[in-house]
Simulated assay, not measured.
Amino acid sequence: MIELKNVSKVYQQKKRRIEAVKEVSLTIEKGEIFGVVGYSGAGKSTLIRMINFLEPPTTGEISINGQNLKELNKKELLLTRRKIGMIFQGYNLLSTATVYENIAKPLKLEGVSKEVIAKRVDKYLDLVGLTDRKDNYPAQLSGGQRQRVAIARALAHEPEILLSDEATSALDPETTESILALLTKINQELGITIFLITHEIDVVQRICDRVAVMEDGKIVEAGPVIDLFTRPEEETTKRFIGANDGYNVPEDVLAAYKGTGRLVQLQFIGDDATEPVLAKVAKDFPLCPNILSGNIGYLKEKRHGQLLVQFAGGTEQDFQAAKEYIKSQGVIIEDISGDLGTGSSVR
């Protein structure tokens, strides 16, 4: 669906050469939600603007459905862009136009008939839940409602791809959740491919199928969301997802377990997140599991539970046997005893 091959973007500011994006290669499959996450200045905004050629790459190729955008003439590129909707952090709504007019105006400029415009505006206002707000002006709407108008406007072109440029970063947590639920609905019901950039790891965790971590213009790690959250390989990824933030266990408590060889992190995925694995360990092995901290959340639609556990009693052989049993139950287990110390964080 979307393919980037060794894409780079270089800006020249007087005598200064700025490499905003460096040799990025990505493939986004049709119908998936793909996220790019990174801190400010990582190159995310430049990257997303290159996908619809608002920022042509300095080098490399960008293809949509196998068509290299660089080879298109102006008319062909315009037609291709109509298949790519975009939503922004700042909404970009006309303050002097009603909700209806904000959605209809771009369609009028394309020469779409009044009848079709009316049907599309009504259809997508209903989808985003703002049918009763069609005659309001942006100033009469909340931030979340304005973003919904912007989404309806992007959908009115009936695109195959929806680009989201930090669409939730200006919203409060509750409104963010509602917008993410809406994007998921759009993806599932309309089959639209969504490519989003964000600096909010919760956004990726909540709705993305796959994710790429970006730093200093480069993709440092990419893969399924579950893999990156449960088995991050790069330090940048670990830092971004909070893998080294610990479990809010007091330092003196952590220090007490230093060198015990019996402190582990357990990660439960999907249905395993509700299985009584530790209860069975306590019953079948001469060990006493001591839960120090834990949490449970979701990665897309799968449960993801994490526990910091100390095993007391038994021999080293008993401990190793219990670890093998836990692994056999589909639970990810990592011995982190050697990573502890006063002031240290754990994952």
Rank of each mutant, 00 (worst) to 15 (best):
T274Q: 14
H304V: 05
L307I: 01
Q317F: 00
V249S: 05
T274W: 03
E301G: 00
Q267G: 13
K323Y: 02
I336M: 02
K323G: 02
I336E: 08
F268T: 03
G338A: 15
A322M: 06
D245N: 15
I291Q: 12
I336H: 05
H304K: 01
Q267F: 05
L278R: 03
Y257N: 09
E316C: 04
G313E: 11
T260S: 15
K258N: 11
N295M: 06
D271M: 01
G242A: 11
L266D: 05
L266C: 07
G314K: 02
Q329D: 01
Y257K: 02
A322I: 06
Y247H: 04
D335Y: 00
S328E: 05
Q317R: 11
Y247G: 13
G242L: 08
L254H: 07
I269A: 05
I269D: 07
G330I: 11
D284A: 12
G294C: 09
D271S: 14
K302R: 15
Y298C: 04
S293C: 08
K258G: 01
G313S: 12
E275W: 12
G242Y: 07
V249Q: 10
G313Q: 13
K323D: 00
Y257V: 09
V281D: 04
G314S: 07
V253F: 09
V264G: 03
V253Y: 11
L266W: 09
K283T: 12
G261V: 04
P286S: 06
A256Y: 13
T260E: 14
S293I: 03
K327F: 08
G305Q: 10
E301W: 00
D335G: 05
E251Q: 15
P289R: 11
V309G: 04
K327D: 06
P250V: 11
I291T: 06
A322S: 13
S293L: 12
F319Y: 15
V277L: 09
F268A: 03
C288F: 03
G294N: 06
Q267W: 01
G314E: 02
D245F: 07
G242P: 10
K327T: 08
N248S: 14
I326R: 00
N244Q: 07
K323A: 09
Y298R: 09
I241P: 12
E251W: 14
A255R: 11
I269P: 01
N290Y: 08
L263G: 10
V264S: 02
Q329L: 12
P286K: 09
L263M: 12
A282W: 03
E275Q: 14
N295Y: 14
G246Y: 04
L299N: 01
S293Q: 10
E334R: 13
Q267T: 08
D284S: 14
N248V: 00
Q267Y: 04
G297I: 06
D252F: 12
